[in-house]
Design a binder for these strands. Sequence first.
DNA 1: ATGACCGACCATGTCGGA
Length: 272
Amino acid sequence: MRFSVATWNINSVRLRFPLVKRFLQKHEPDVLCLQETKCPDDKFPRKDFEKIGYPHIAVYGQKGYHGVAIVSRHPLGGVQRENFCKKEDCRHLAATFGPDAGLKEPVTIHNFYVPAGGDEPDPVINEKFAHKLSFLEELAEHAVSRDARNGARSILVGDLNVAPLEHDVWSHKQMIRVVSHTPEEVERFEKFRESGGWIDVMRAFVPADRKLYTWWSYRALDWAESDRGRRLDHVLVSPALEKAAIEMNILKKARGWKQPSDHVPVTVAFEL
DNA sequence: ATGACCGACCATGTCGGA
């Protein structure tokens, strides 16, 4: 069946529920993975999602910062919340979709929010950057990647906070020492990707020599005019799902909605 | 100067985002 998965760093799910509703009602993905929900689990707006046809929900949130959630039209099971770098800071959530979701073979969706890494790209003086590098290193060694390499049917999405390719940023030259595009991060991102055999689905639809962004800074006077974006949000699949993706969409215009997130939704449709 | 910002919180500044 056709099964679509969207990912969106929403930067407060409570504040921006109206935008999420607008997106879900128009595009109707089967599953939406959210990051930066900034919402404790008991405050997650479950009823609002139920009302618009997304009653199957898994959350891993906390007060104020970070937080991830998976909302679905179909039943989900096998919910996992992995912690990295010995922190319980709500950066991973997984769920498995099987026969009761209409899938013959089960698929596990992993939703990640990788640390941003602060300003200074030096792990010695900036512990946030050190945390980010450690997180990516741990991800490469983690069962999530090992299982993918060993034949699991896995989809990994989220705000990975790394723009790995030259044309994932508006200027490779001007971004080379800016956190999100430094060689240190890109190298660890690549090691992680290779460790799981993860396939970059977005780039299977848009060649690497074309600019591709999912995030535009709030600070720009006119985000669309300057168009200085980065591709921080990703959809990766394990080798078992290499040929499953049939369509990909980046909803750039969501950046122009009223009181927007600085990230836009990315949706991939699969034949599963 | 890419950037004149944005959200949560026991708020009226501070932290985190990227």
